[in-house]
Simulated assay, not measured.
Amino acid sequence: MPPLPDLTLIVAATQQMGIGRNGTLPWTGLRKEMAYFARVTKRLPRASLPPSTTSTNSNPGSTVGGQLQNAVIMGRKTWESIPERFRPLPGRVNVVISRSASSSPSASSTTPAGGEGGDDGKGVVMAGSLEEALRYLGDKREGEQGVGRVFVIGGAQIYRAALGLREARRVLLTRVRSEFECDTFFPVKLDERDGETGWRQSGQAEMDAWVGEEVPRGVQAEAGTEYEFEMWERVD
């Protein structure tokens, strides 16, 4: 069996790790933050790029030879929270976790979630659990259509399941500094002031190197909301 791919969780959360309210984001209008999410989740790891590709990877949504893409894993509710015209998220393998999905996800059974596959007609991969999704992506890595990085993008239950796996190595956190009322929370409080958490915050240079761009420094302000980009890595 191929090894399971490493996981990077990507999330925007308040100081108290709030990530949602009434099934949607508590904040609106963070266009630059959403553009950052799109770039990061599309950009292929540098080691997988052919020699002719520039180091900046100016077209991060492209594939190598029409084959290689990153993958984004999400729960059904997160999928349904994405406006229909924007799903599936382009330039990435979309994997949706649903209890009603087939127990054996495969390329041949790729179908639109809930019958809605977006304008490109490619649909998404449905899986009954996170483990099934990872096995599918591990097999895909070994085949002709490879997978680059694998991102978990929500919601809370999928984050919790991912954090329980040793393959979860990294969290890309947008730390929302403004106050918002939330009813859904990220399972781990990433704050080194709270003592030993099993996670450490990476330095700016480390984050830039992994993300593949110079990530904006310090507190950003947009649509009346302040936020800051961080990266956390698991301490073995």
Rank of each mutant, 00 (worst) to 15 (best):
A223Q: 09
W232V: 11
P2V: 07
P187Q: 08
E132Q: 12
M207H: 06
G198C: 09
D208L: 04
R21F: 12
T41L: 07
A205C: 06
S48F: 06
G65A: 06
E214K: 06
F186H: 03
F180V: 03
G218V: 10
A47N: 13
V171K: 01
A107P: 02
L9W: 00
V96A: 01
G115W: 15
T225N: 09
D119F: 10
A12T: 01
W232G: 05
V215P: 07
A13E: 11
L165G: 03
R234A: 10
R141P: 04
S62Q: 12
K140N: 09
S129A: 08
Q15E: 15
N22V: 02
T184A: 10
Q220W: 09
P45V: 11
V171E: 14
A223Y: 03
E222D: 07
R175T: 14
E116G: 05
T184R: 03
G195E: 14
Q201E: 15
W79G: 02
W232H: 05
A38F: 12
T78E: 01
S104R: 10
V188D: 12
G212D: 10
R170I: 03
V93I: 14
W232I: 08
R43C: 01
Q145V: 13
C182K: 06
P26M: 10
K42P: 05
V219C: 01
S103H: 11
G91W: 10
E214Y: 00
P83V: 06
N70S: 03
Q15W: 02
R217S: 13
L190N: 04
Q204V: 13
A156E: 15
M126Y: 05
A12R: 00
I158H: 04
F86W: 09
F180Y: 15
L7M: 03
Q15R: 13
M207A: 09
K140E: 14
A221Q: 15
S102Q: 07
E144H: 13
A156F: 01
S62G: 09
R177F: 07
G20N: 06
T197N: 00
S103L: 09
S55K: 11
F229N: 00
Q145H: 15
Q201I: 05
E196I: 02
L137G: 08
A209G: 11
L163M: 10
L173C: 05
S178V: 11
V235T: 15
G29R: 10
R39G: 08
G138T: 04
A161W: 10
S103P: 10
G114E: 14
F185S: 04
G155C: 07
I97Q: 06
S48V: 12
K77M: 07
L4W: 11
V64A: 04
G121F: 06
D191F: 02
P88V: 09
A38V: 14
Y159T: 05
P50D: 12
Y36N: 10
R177Q: 15
Q15M: 07
F186S: 01
D139N: 15
R99V: 01
A12F: 09
R160D: 14
